[in-house]
Write a protein that binds this DNA or RNA. Structure first.
Length: 458
RNA sequence: GGAUAGGUGGCAGAGUGGUUAUGCGUGGGACUGCAGAUCCCAUCUACUAGGGUUCAAAUCCCUACCUAUCCUCCA
């Protein structure tokens, strides 16, 4: 398997530190608001990637942090005049419920920063002791000039940075490139006791504290959005390598491209966000997953409801084939589709920097091949294709589960039989009315050769 | 100013030296009472611009232009 490593800017052969085992960390959300379509891309992509790694037989330990101590959370708590934990818990719950709906189920463990304060303090203490960190007027800072390789991930040289391009330089840093490890308490803000002051951790230190706790000094894969490369991931490398003294922190860095709205990055500050909930009220979770996976994860992905609609159309072909193959006993032909080469290509695309888009192209190709000979298909071939689609779904999560509860099935078979009587009597107005009423109730009817099929569409 | 990734048909998006990408869309047809699903046929001959290398360039080189992301908020 090969993956693009941001550290080297090359597609490299992947070798885990310990054969057969992978430790992967992905930067999670700051729980101060509902996540948007841009955030969702990263979580769905790495969910799918994690499922693929397990599919390949790796024993994967996948940790994601939750930033639940942060300026934005505190600001929002002040606005609403509630405790900061009220805010973080509220949006953590919403985040988790969206992850469930989006079928993101591969994360071994979610680690909220607030539960790792001891580990954070321990790291800062070691950084101070080794001379990498210093006390400023309002907190503890990491001295970037002490760490020679700063900038190795992003290609940035500290001297070329322009101070205050996006954020005003106000604090008591020695150099503007330095970043906060610990922020001293201000009135009304949450705080924890550290040997040097009461306060709260900076953003970058929480991830290294969490990964050290679970993984140790080095681990296999670190993922996140490409907007985190600098400074966040650069800072993580500086912190952990300064502590460990090793040349390597995470061995492979994978970054997802941004989701753009009308050619501009979707972000809260740009005011162009589309919340996940907004999408899920109009599309199935599987449509959104397909939309994400139908692109190269490193490229910028343009979002619009129209593009999502297109994506949904393509996905439905796979869904329809899967449904059509539902009862493989119905197939009586003797035509066999050569699935082996399709499956092989599918897997080799995933092995090449997790190229989900090309892999999906193979699946869509299969739908064309299968549909064009569907009437002649042998039961064995139908079964084989169905198994393959289930395999695809176990990695991608793009086929909506069929809901065929026993009660509903019994009720509907009566209704469908009645509608059939109406149709035979050529009372089409009434039979169509029945169909549209059921559709409003979320049940779709489709008349196929001599038989009416139903499915739940919501 | 610096760093990184790009610019391909109506849209999305592969393709790194020589052959139709593909999908969506659009038009027509088949099937159906209709709808939906599906199939068949057609449509589209495109590579930011200029120059260079070559028998041959979307692909390699140079120049210019344009776009996105980052430069201590961010998935």
């Amino acid at each position: 398997m090969k993956i693009f490593n941001t550290l080297t800017r090359k597609i490299e052969e992947f070798h885990p530190i310990r054969k057969g085992k992978i430790k992967m960390f992905v930067c999670g959300p700051t729980v101060y608001d509902e996540i948007h379509v841009g955030n969702g891309r990263t979580f769905v992509l790495f969910d799918s990637f994690a499922k693929y790694l397990r599919f390949k037989g790796y024993l994967l330990f996948y940790v994601q942090n939750i930033t639940d101590v942060d300026d934005k959370i505190i600001d929002k708590a002040k606005d609403e005049n509630v405790a900061f934990s009220t805010i973080s818990e509220r949006y953590l719950n919403i985040f988790m419920s969206y992850m469930e709906r989006l079928r993101v189920e591969s994360v071994s463990l979610y680690a909220p920063a607030s539960l790792f304060i001891d580990e954070i303090i321990s790291q800062i203490r070691r950084l101070i002791r080794r001379g990498y960190a210093y006390r400023g007027d309002d907190g503890i800072y990491f001295s970037v000039s002490k760490f020679d390789d700063y900038g190795s991930l992003s290609g940035q040289k500290p001297d070329n940075l322009i101070p205050g391009v996006r954020k005003s330089v106000t604090s008591s840093k020695k150099n503007f490139q330095d970043f906060a490890l610990w922020k001293d308490m201000k009135p009304g803000e949450p705080w924890w006791s550290a040997p040097w002051s009461k306060g709260r951790p900076g953003w970058h230190i929480e991830d290294t504290a969490i990964t050290e706790y679970f993984f140790g000094y080095t681990y296999d894969i670190h993922g996140g959005g490409s907007d985190l490369i600098f400074p966040h991931h650069e800072a993580e490398i500086a912190q952990m390598r300064s502590i460990s003294g090793r040349k390597t922190y995470a061995r492979y860095w994978m970054h997802t491209g941004m989701v753009n709205m009308a050619s501009e990055k979707m972000s809260k500050s740009a005011g162009n966000i589309v919340k996940i909930g907004n999408v899920l009220s109009r599309f199935r979770p599987e449509d959104l997953r397909f939309f994400y996976l139908n692109s190269n994860y490193r490229n910028v992905l343009d979002f619009s409801m129209d593009l999502l609609e297109e994506s949904s159309t393509a996905r439905m072909r796979i869904q329809n084939l899967y449904r059509k193959l539902g009862d493989t006993g119905e197939f009586t032909g003797n035509h066999n589709i050569e699935l082996g080469s399709i499956r092989k290509k599918f897997l080799s695309h995933l092995d090449h920097d997790f190229d989900t888009r090309s892999a999906l192209r193979e699946v869509l190709h299969l739908t064309s091949v299968a549909f064009s000979s569907i009437d002649r298909l042998s039961p064995a071939s139908a079964e084989e294709i169905k198994r393959f689609l289930m395999e695809v779904d176990s990695i991608f999560g793009i086929i909506s589960p069929e809901k065929r509860e026993g009660n509903l099935s019994r009720i509907l078979s009566g209704i469908i039989a009645y509608r059939e009587e109406l149709r035979r009597a050529r009372k089409f107005d009434e039979s169509d009315r029945l169909r549209s009423l059921l559709r409003e109730a979320g049940i779709s009817l489709e008349d196929r050769a001599g038989k009416t099929e139903w499915s739940v569409i919501e």
